[in-house]
Design a protein around this nucleic acid. Structure first.
Length: 337
DNA sequence: CCGTTAATAT
DNA sequence: TATATTAACG
């Protein structure tokens, strides 16, 4: 859905055939959906007021020239995307943007200021529909995998993912679907293939998104019997143990992870600024969605920092301990699998 | 408030 | 139709 839904008035592409010169009865009041209107406005609002900036008719006449910034043009012409994440690797046709080295620096954050509450629009307004690209989903899965079913709850997952702009709701929703997917999977795989045959394959086909990411089979079932996770900590009296485990360090598996999570839980209140959507500074990420940088957790509570050098970006490389073991899950913007 | 689950919108 | 978002519930 684009910002400009051709809802009512503005421009409705009328497939008017000549013969049909339909006389439009404006008298007709189609108030089928009135309320939608205002909602629409809301939607558009958050993103930007580019509408306002629209070059006056005269200006835009010569569209041949590069009068308009590419961003703008892009917005107009292509406009297939909102802000989030266009799959960077999978789909070959990446946004054309970078044709000129010129690459103006202007971080598109220019502002929707348009006047009013420009301060922190993102916080209050509706954000664009989030699309779960395979990459994003991969991150999600990795997070869940590393968290273990126990801690795999929206908030935690979200935090671990460290994806800017991601809301708890987003994750929750996705998690919902994901769980369902897993369920189906295990159900089918064990139940016996009724019907026709292709099981996982078919499923995979159906839930293509999920299929794209390696589904750590382990947490297919598991409620509580295993008893993996008794407190690792050394006798700290109290609930939580390790204050903080640098993300860089939480490389392998659950236990440490749990600690990290616990720590995270403490200082959960991160900054949630979702700044530039249009142009990522690094250019690393296509649309700067996956960009969110690690909130430098500065002074964390506690003292003992077991491992050292937290400084780097958060990498989580994990070697699947399972049999073949040639799985390398990386949590960061590595290429992809 | 958080996590789930169901309903609704796009 | 599929998928994301929003509402309701415990």
């Amino acid at each position: 859905m684009l910002f400009l839904q051709s809802h009512h008035q503005p421009f409705q592409y009328q497939t008017h055939t000549e013969e049909q010169e339909k006389k439009q009865k404006e008298k007709e009041k189609e108030k089928e959906e009135e309320q939608e209107m205002r909602e629409e406005e809301d939607h558009a609002k958050w993103f930007s007021r580019w509408e306002d900036q629209l070059p006056s008719p005269e200006e835009l006449t010569p569209l041949t020239t590069s009068l308009i910034t590419r961003d703008l043009a892009l917005a107009f012409d292509i406009t297939p995307n909102r802000s989030p994440p266009p799959p960077s690797s999978n789909p070959p046709p990446p946004p054309p943007p970078s044709s000129h080295p010129n690459s103006s620096e202007f971080v598109d954050s220019a502002e929707l200021g348009s006047g009013a509450g420009s301060d922190e629009p993102a916080r209050t307004l509706k954000r664009p529909r989030l699309v779960w690209t395979p990459q994003l989903h991969k991150r999600f899965v990795d997070a869940v995998a590393h968290l273990g079913i126990k801690n795999a709850v929206p908030k935690t997952i979200m935090q671990l993912m460290s994806v800017d702009g991601l809301t708890r709701e987003n994750v929750a929703s996705h998690l919902q679907k994901y769980r369902l997917y897993l369920k189906r999977m295990q159900g089918l795989s064990s139940g016996g293939g009724a019907g026709g045959g292709g099981i996982s394959a078919a499923d995979a086909a159906a839930d293509h998104l999920f299929a794209s990411a390696p589904v750590p089979h382990h947490f297919l079932h598991r409620g509580s019997g295993g008893g993996p996770p008794p407190a690792p900590a050394g006798g700290v009296g109290g609930e939580h143990f390790l204050p903080f485990v640098p993300v860089a360090a939480l490389q392998h598996h659950h236990q440490q992870m749990a600690a990290a999570v616990a720590a995270a839980h403490q200082q959960q209140q991160f900054q949630r600024q979702l700044g530039h959507f249009g142009s990522p500074p690094g250019g690393q990420f296509d649309h700067g969605f996956l960009a969110r940088q690690q909130p430098a957790m500065h002074r964390m509570v506690g003292a003992a920092m077991p491992v050292s050098a937290p400084t780097g970006p958060a990498y989580i490389e994990d070697l699947e301990s399972g049999g073949g073991g040639r799985k390398v899950l990386t949590l960061f913007p590595t290429a992809e699998d």
